[in-house]
Amino acid sequence: MINVDVQSKSYGNTQVLRDIHLSLERGDALAILGASGIGKTTLLRIIAGIDTKYDGVIERPENIGIVFQEPTLLPWRSVFDNIKLVHPSRTNDAIHAMLRDVGLSGKAEMFPGQLSLGQQRRLSLARGFAGQPELLILDEPFVSLDQATADDMLSLTKRLIDKTEPTTIFVTHNMAEAATLATQVMTLQGEPATLHNGGDPQ
């Protein structure tokens, strides 16, 4: 269960978000659409607990997984360590199984710099799911990938969501991605931007 109640978020004197009200149950998947620069990533950072400077209250589980636009990996640690260091309680077998799930089973000892961008994204996805999160946040994880790789990643993400059933919130510009992954699709719009699901998906 996650409840988001953000009355206001400002950068200096500029208010970018207002009256954001979201309520999601376990297994819900919310896709947030919206124009570039409207505040989608800002909202995700607030929900994830990265940005704490806002007026409002958020109830979120402790166990959160996140997949950023960029892979955001530790380039100085191996593929395996990139998951193990973030999820130290996971067994080695569980991490290897997760790497197998995302098609990186033979790459465990490699450094991220030795992987293609698509493989780095897969690793980022594996890290996001490895902790079996109650809340999963995806910030345009398929952006700047070629269509075939993006489609591949999308079906992989769908498979992992179906397997682990987290509450999912993700940002995208792509309606096809939203249709594939989401149980609710909302558009962040207005100036300052606002959003509420209140049982009435748009």
């Binding site: 950072r45 994830a48 607990g49 990265i50 402790e62 166990n63 959160i64 997984g65 996140i66 950023f68 960029e70 955001t72 530790l74 100085w76 640690r77 260091l85 973030v86 999820h87 130290p88 890290r127 902790g131 946040i137």
Partner: peptide, 27 residues
Amino acid sequence: PDLSAMAKVFGMRKSAILRHIILPQLG
């Protein structure tokens, strides 16, 4: 800052953040 944000969301311990994220960047 993205690596620090990642560590924060995943709830990494402060000692682990220092050892595995901050110090390697300061290397």
